[in-house]
Write a protein that binds this DNA or RNA. Structure first.
Length: 628
RNA sequence: GUCCCAGUAGCUCAGCAGGAUAGAGCAUACGCCUUCUAAGCGUACGGUCGGGGGUUCGAAUCCCUCCUGGGACGCCA
């Protein structure tokens, strides 16, 4: 990687320079490179001279000059740079020699790969309540999780994808109560749509008939005990919904390795073991008096507990076992996470759900699933606190290393724009900037509805309909839309904006990719062009081509950053920029015109762009069609 | 009450291990298809980076403070 090459080079020179001035190296000194915004500032730059100025008491420009001569004496970093310049106020700018770069000599082996191949990462995502159809908010979760999975696999990690199914929860019980006690006249294509409405209806009914709420407790109890008509009903609803949700996700290229059912966690006795382990620590105990009398709680760290002694309403201890003996969600999650890291003696057994997908089950076979070195949970930011509790439990039990390898990928929720909310019949007269989706109220954009809508938009736009289906394009466009935002951004979903097929959209990327394919296809088919061997020619390099090469040179560090930071949006930005530069190149530099040398040169560039875009699209879980 | 996140163009968002002239897309107005896919390309318009202090050679980026919006702190999941 070029960036690492420069850093290693600078590292040596900075050490030597500090020694020459008899200066100590401060701990906070960071040698960094950046991609200059303006090409005249080179392809890479460093501000290290300005940082050193204070330390060695020389002008930044003078230091930059000294570093420049040292680098030049050493051969300009393996000859990769044609020029290294020291410029005011003290930047050190590196200019790539594109002939060298094009030869592939810039590539360095990935030292981290070995370590990664021995690291097993368990990614949990989707985890939708199995009681109704999925909405866009759920889809954002799945798209993020699936893209992270692709990125981590690509980086060399062993990755296992889990989808956690809460088949013992209140929400499932609600839907069952709804099926039994509310009426529905509509016709529904899918069970999930029916449940969507039924779930909303039952929540409405609870307000009018408080006695219905007691029914929920009855159903919940039945589901947990697993031995009655109601239990079967719950199980059937959950299974049917999960099947539909998996089908939906499959259309977006999202797949899983394992379904983990909450009922399996309970049945396998994970909690009993966890309880044993926690009881041996002094941070877990039964409360004997006060508000939480009779509960088993996990104690917060002392300092934060002290700080909140004033207020009675808020306290830091987390209940794991209720006074009636029933576990909280967090308790089960702690047990599950101990299992994820292979720290429990208990284990699941599995049965095959479908090809390539296993499910925990009451009876089945053992599998080498779990035992992760790193755990990644894709969950929206509202669950930050419970996630911290799980981490805290690991720490309390002395599993510091595992706690540090438990990563909560926290992302912002998806809400609705005023326009889109109004389209769903919501009263927007209060003038809010966005409106929350709510399963309870039946407010939200369902995944399949969105896909249908987008498919229509795409279909209306298409002139020729060969190859990839409009639905596949639609799915890719939606996927891109949900991935392009930075994770913490709360996406304000707007139907008009989401179904956009121009500009910074998934369709734009696909279009650029097929465009490159179209050129390369033509070059292969035309007899006149077949003989031409693509190769790079530095003397023919024009501005739009240079811009493209420069951006392509940045790919390794972009990918690396995105993987380290678990940030899919970085790949989106990179891919959009690449597509944009390619479209510019396309209009300014006809590939298949002109003399043979030029054609060969531009074909070479086009090939490289295609393979980069291909890589980016695959990481983003988008299709790579030859034609649109 | 405590803590967390956000506030950048009319709208939706990038940029935020301090850097060189603050960027996209959409919207609006123009221009470009007998030439490799016009789902494209180009031009224009659009900003006291929420307000105020501070740190320094340099602040959208770091610190303090205030304002506004969202979230968490449950014997829900």
């Amino acid at each position: 990687m070029i960036q690492q090459l420069i850093l290693a080079e600078l590292e040596g020179h900075v050490e030597a320079l500090l020694a020459a001035y008899a200066a100590e190296r401060p701990a906070q000194l960071k040698i960094l490179t950046e991609h200059p915004a303006h090409p005249e500032h080179g392809d890479y730059s460093s501000n290290i001279a300005m940082q050193l100025a204070k330390i060695v008491r020389r002008s930044p420009l003078q230091i930059a000059g000294e570093l420049q001569s040292r680098i030049e004496e050493g051969g300009s970093v393996q000859g990769l740079f044609r020029k290294v310049a020291a410029v005011a106020p003290g930047f050190l700018n590196f200019y790539i020699d594109w002939n060298v770069w094009a030869s592939g000599a810039y590539q360095t082996e990935d030292k981290q790969r070995m370590r990664r191949e021995q690291t097993k990462v368990l990614v949990e995502h989707t985890s939708i309540n199995p009681n109704k159809a999925a909405h866009v908010g759920h889809l954002r979760n799945s798209c993020i999780g699936d893209t992270l999975t692709r990125m981590l696999s690509h980086a060399g990690y062993q990755v296992e994808v889990h989808n956690y199914i809460d088949d013992l929860g209140n929400q499932l019980a609600d839907t069952v109560v709804g099926i039994l006690h509310t009426q529905s006249e509509g016709t529904f294509l899918r069970f999930g749509d029916f449940c969507w409405e039924t779930y909303a209806k039952v929540n409405q009914a609870y307000k009018a008939q408080p006695e219905l709420a007691e029914q929920r407790a009855v159903v919940l109890h039945a589901i947990e005990s697993g031995t009655s008509n109601l239990a079967w009903m719950g199980a059937l609803v959950a299974e049917r919904i999960v099947r539909e949700q998996l089908e939906e996700m499959k259309q977006f290229g999202i797949n899983y390795d394992v379904l983990v059912w909450e009922s399996s966690i309970v049945r396998a006795g994970f909690w009993d073991t966890t309880f044993e382990l926690l009881s041996r620590t002094n941070m877990f105990h039964k409360v004997t008096e006060g508000k939480l009398a009779g509960c088993w709680v996990l104690k917060q760290a002392e300092d934060s507990a002290d700080a909140s002694t004033d207020s009675q309403d808020f306290q830091g201890d987390k209940v794991l076992v209720r006074s009636n003996g029933i576990l909280t969600y967090t308790a089960k999650d702690i047990a599950y996470h101990l299992w994820k890291f292979g720290l429990l003696e208990n284990d699941f057994v599995y049965k095959k759900w479908e090809d390539g997908l296993w499910s925990t089950a009451a009876e089945g076979r053992k599998k080498p699933i779990g035992h992760a070195d790193m755990v990644i949970n894709v969950i929206d930011y509202r669950q930050q606190y419970p996630q911290e509790m799980v981490k805290l439990a690991l720490e309390v039990l002395g599993y510091e290393k595992q706690a540090s390898q438990l990563k909560h990928v926290s992302y912002g929720v998806v809400s609705l724009s005023p326009g889109t909310a109004a389209g769903l019949g919501i009263d927007t007269s209060d003038g809010k900037g966005s409106y929350a989706m709510s399963g309870r109220q039946g407010i939200g954009i369902k995944v399949t509805d969105l896909l249908d809508r987008m498919e229509q938009v795409i279909d209306a736009k298409r002139s020729r309909k060969a190859g990839i289906s409009s639905r596949a394009i639609a799915a890719a466009a939606i996927r891109y839309y949900l991935l392009k935002y930075q994770l913490q951004t709360e996406v304000v979903f707007d139907m008009e904006q989401a179904t956009e097929v121009t500009g910074n959209s998934g369709v734009y990327l696909l279009y650029a990719y097929t465009r490159a394919n179209s050129i390369l296809d033509k070059a292969q088919k035309e007899p006149r062009l077949q003989a031409i061997q693509a190769h790079f020619a530095g003397n023919l390099l024009e501005e739009p081509e240079y811009q493209l090469l420069r951006h392509m040179a940045y790919w390794p560090e972009t990918l690396d950053n995105a993987t380290d930071q678990l940030a899919p949006s970085l790949i989106c930005h990179y891919a959009f920029e690449l597509a944009s530069l390619f479209n510019h190149f396309y209009s300014a530099c006809p590939v298949l015109k002109g003399n043979e040398d030029r054609i060969a040169h531009r074909l070479w560039i086009t090939q490289l762009v295609r393979s980069r875009l291909h890589q980016a699209l695959e990481l983003l879980g988008m299709p790579t069609p030859k034609r649109l």
